[in-house]
């Protein structure tokens, strides 16, 4: 507990100065912003002594996982997220996958919602109401995501595409990746289809190639320094679609899971490092 208090203090102090630096850098017309940001992140990492604030989300998530809640007063401990009821260790490495009880391919976030509805008795709308947290209103889902994924750290991605619905999800996801549209004619492939590309100073992983696709996928979810939150993979897609000038990707929608299936399968063999830490 003492450790957490100290960490929180360190985080809030450094995060405040870092947020300042980031805001200053995005509004400045001149270019040295990238270097300054990188230096700030380095300072930040040092201040935390190699710790990752995601640990706070992991701990909170573990608490939520084990606590009886909802109208049925049940915990997540009987929730099947891929390896059978109650099995958390290594489960993230096999997701998304087909689940017979819902007859759907599901990712981690959608599975958490499913368990909240089926096991805990929440209404569907309530279960998926706040997928992405803010400092004022933390998201239970993001904490659960941090906990569950931390239990697969160091393991290799191992998604199987056998069931017809898994095949269908993979193909739909692939189509979505290459689908160009909107006022800018962008698709995922515009920003993630070639090696060594950058937008301004931000590196863009080539998600059509094994090694960078593995590295990118296995580092999510992540603690986002610029936002002071742990962000899930659903959030990553939501925000890239925003940059793509597309409408809002609905949380745990069939398309979002299909795209995740495509990206996760391409990351097979990559070692999970999530929750990691990002700018």
């Amino acid at each position: 507990m003492q450790y957490f208090k100290r960490t929180i203090l360190a985080i809030s102090i450094v995060a405040a100065s870092l947020t300042g630096a980031l805001v200053a850098s995005t509004s400045s017309a001149q270019g040295s912003s990238g270097d300054a940001t990188i230096k700030e992140i380095e300072k930040y990492r040092q201040a935390l002594g190699d710790g990752n604030p995601a640990e706070l989300w992991e701990a909170r998530g573990e608490g939520i996982w084990k606590k009886p809640r909802g109208p049925k007063n049940a915990s997540f401990e009987q929730c099947d997220i891929g390896l059978g009821p109650g099995k958390v260790k290594g489960a993230y490495a096999v997701l998304p996958k087909y689940f017979a009880d819902t007859d759907k391919v599901e990712d981690l976030e959608s599975r958490l919602v499913t368990c909240m509805v089926i096991l805990q008795g929440y209404k569907y709308e309530d279960a998926k109401k706040s997928p992405f947290g803010s400092p004022e209103r933390k998201s239970d889902i993001e904490a659960l995501v941090a906990y569950v994924t931390s239990e697969s750290r160091g393991m290799k991605m191992n998604v199987t595409i056998n069931h017809p619905k898994e095949k269908e999800a993979f193909e739909i996801g692939k189509t979505m990746f290459f689908h160009r549209g909107g006022p800018h004619d962008f698709g995922c492939v515009t920003c993630h289809g070639a090696d060594n590309q950058r937008i301004r100073l931000q590196d863009l992983p080539n998600l059509t190639k094994k090694e960078p696709a593995q590295r990118a996928y296995t580092s999510w979810p992540a603690y986002r320094v610029s936002q002071g939150e742990v962000r899930s993979f659903q959030w990553r897609l939501f925000d890239c679609f925003r940059q793509q000038r597309f409408p809002e990707l609905e949380f745990t929608s069939q398309g979002s899971i299909a795209l995740t299936t495509y990206l996760a399968k391409n990351a097979n063999g990559g070692v999970l490092t999530a929750p990691s830490i990002k700018r």
């Binding site: 000038r245 809002e248 609905e250 929608s253 398309g255």
Partner: peptide
């Protein structure tokens, strides 16, 4: 079919 699934997976938001 991919286009149907895609369309069903997005919501209008603001100008988008």
């Amino acid at each position: 079919q991919a286009e149907f699934v895609m369309k069903a997976s997005f919501m209008d938001r603001g100008q988008a």
